[in-house]
Each structure stands twice: as C-alpha cells, then as structure tokens.
C-alpha cells in the first residue's frame, strides 16, 4: 500500500467551481429559446438570471443539479439532454475549447477530454482507456448518483459523439455501455448516439476499435494540442478539479486488492470516519455501495480484458474463495459471473 501521503484536495457538492456562463448558460439559452420562464428555470437554485450573464459567476454542482432538474420537469419531450449535449463541445470555454478544436486524432481528443474533464464535463469525469483492441472513455460520476445522472450521461455522450463526428468527418461505430436501466425512449439513442447501446452495466463508457485511435483528423494541429497538454501539466499543482465521489472512487479502484475499509479511506483522505460517512451521505453515497461497484467493475475487467478465471478474480479481489465471489456477484447483478458476462455480448 502506498505509504507516502500528501494532503488531498477535492471539490464537494456545494463548492462553486462551474463557470455559469459556460455550460449552464447553454442549457438556459436552449430553454429560453422555447419561451420558458427564467424565474421558473432558476427556481430554488439561488442563481439570478442577471448574474448568470456575468462572466465571473461560478456555481456549485448542487446548484447545477437543481437547475437541470427544473429544466427536465418543465420541458415536455425526451430529447432535451441530447439537444443540450450537441451544443456543448467544443464550446467556447477559452483556451480549453481552442486546444480541443485542434485535437489531431481520437487519441489526442481523449487525452484532452481527460485532462480538462473538470472544465469540459464538470459533473461527469471522462477517463481515457485502452484495452484489448478497444479504446474509449469511461464516464465517472463526480458528485454521486443523483436523479439527474441519466440526463447528464445522455448529454455528455451526445456531446462527445457529436464532437468526434463533426471534428473528424469520420462516422465512428461507437458502442455504449451504460450503468443505468434502459429508458423508454430508445429512438433518441438510435438517432442521437447511433451505434449499439447496452444498459445496466457496471460502468458507463463509450468505445470503438483501436484502429481508429491514431487515424488523423483534417482539422488537427499537433502543435496546438500538445501545447494544451503542457498547459495542463503547469496547472496540475493548482487546486484539484476532482469531485469528492470521483476521488473516493479512484482511491477505491487503485487499492481494491488490499482489502480496504471505511477507516482506511478516512485516513487516506485525512478525515475522521464519522466525517467521511457524513460527507458520503451528503453525496447520496455509501462506502459499501461504492466498494461493491468498484469490485464489480474490476471483476468484469479482469474476466473480459485479462481472461482471468473465477478463482483468479476471487483471489485478486481478496475473496475467501470462489463461492464467495459468486455469491457477491449474485448480490451485485442478480446473476452468476458467467451469465452476466454472456449478457455483455
């Protein structure tokens, strides 16, 4: 286990770090275009319409969630998240958009999206992955599962799909795996996301075959995009952009082999166990639940990508024996490991 500790920083639900005139303003514009009342849209968010136009104002994840929830309730259709997403990237978010527009391949775009995730997708952090001939983005919740989770996933998937497609001119055959149950409006996924979609998975992600990874894009400029990555490394000692749940999830995943518990996590974060519990509760989460999800994600990865046997996975995750793993799998997914894996196609 890593014995070297430095002080960790993170963002919580009430921390104001999302520039209101960037992504939230796009949603507001979209709603105002349909003549919804701005007072109703901002009701209960403690944001004032006039302040939103002010380029100084930052809002918290909590305020953003509430605003999204208001919009969802007022908007009559099922396509709001997708329409909102299609307006998000590359966006006009100062340098960040500039660098993103010059990504010269999927590889470059994935890197930039991951590095600037706190800005380009503040509520749902993208994480670049390559495994077994596939590459793509894993989307991780920054501030816990809320009732807006599905909306935010739909928006960010639509945003990136639209961005990759227009920027490259390539029709990527995306495959999507989503960590929520199938909604009733599949036609929106069909038209707005394309590709194949499966629901109730361990983690939300989108991916294509690795052959597309380095295929050059016409609008790219290595020069500019590499400067973007450099800018990131000079920024990295500044304040963390990691949401509390994102950070907790990351720590759990990194240490999943070591039989971790709540007390360990509390020490790792420099909090008392009681404070940690309270913070998790405030983010609609529980340690047990986060640990189970991380174990499931790791188990699926080991089975699929690394070709582990039941026994190997059980020992990797610190289960007493194979039967214990099977029992846990049943609890997580309602299926045995082999049934769950075959349902993954």
């Amino acid at each position: 286990m890593n014995s070297f500790h430095h002080e960790r920083t993170w963002l919580e639900l009430q921390d104001k770090f999302i520039p209101a005139h960037w992504q939230p303003a796009i949603l507001l514009d979209l709603m105002l275009q349909h003549e919804f009342n701005s007072h109703k849209l901002l009701h209960g968010t403690s944001i004032f319409y006039d302040d939103l136009l002010d380029s100084q104002l930052c809002i918290s994840a909590e305020q953003y969630f509430k605003f999204i929830s208001n919009c969802r309730k007022l908007y009559p259709g099922t396509d709001l998240s997708f329409r909102y997403g299609q307006r998000l990237l590359p966006g006009t978010y100062s340098d960040y958009s500039y660098f993103l527009k010059h990504a010269s391949s999927l590889h470059g775009a994935f890197q930039l999206l991951e590095k600037f995730g706190g800005i380009l997708s503040p509520l749902l952090r993208p994480e670049y992955f390559i495994e077994q001939g596939r590459c793509g983005l894993i989307w991780r919740s920054g501030f816990g599962q809320t009732s807006e989770h599905v909306f935010i996933c739909e928006a960010m998937l639509a945003a990136t799909r639209e961005f990759f497609r227009t920027q490259s001119g390539i029709q990527f055959p995306w495959r999507y795996e989503l960590d929520y149950v199938e909604p009733s409006y599949m036609e929106q996924y069909e038209v707005n996301l394309g590709g194949s979609v499966s629901f109730s998975r361990a983690v939300t992600r989108m991916f294509v075959d690795s052959q597309f990874l380095h295929q050059p894009w016409p609008s790219g400029s290595d020069n500019v995009y590499l400067r973007g990555l450099q800018k990131h490394s000079s920024l990295s000692h500044q304040k963390s952009q990691d949401g509390f749940i994102y950070l907790v999830n990351k720590l759990i995943l990194e240490n999943i082999r070591h039989g971790i518990d709540l007390d360990w996590l509390a020490v790792e974060l420099g909090l008392s166990p009681a404070t940690l519990k309270r913070k998790l509760k405030r983010h609609h989460s529980q340690f047990r639940w986060l640990l189970d999800t991380a174990r499931l994600e790791t188990a699926v990865h080991l089975f699929k990508a690394e070709g582990f046997t039941n026994e190997q996975v059980a020992s990797y995750l610190g289960f007493y024996d194979e039967a214990n793993l099977r029992r846990s799998f049943k609890r997580w997914t309602g299926m045995s490991p082999s049934d769950f894996l075959s349902s993954l196609c």
Partner: peptide, 8 residues
C-alpha cells in the same frame, strides 16, 4: 407526420 427523433 410525426417526429421520430433528432432529424428523423
């Protein structure tokens, strides 16, 4: 006539 989704 009905809107399917998006531009369809």
């Amino acid at each position: 006539l009905s809107r399917y989704a998006g531009d369809r």
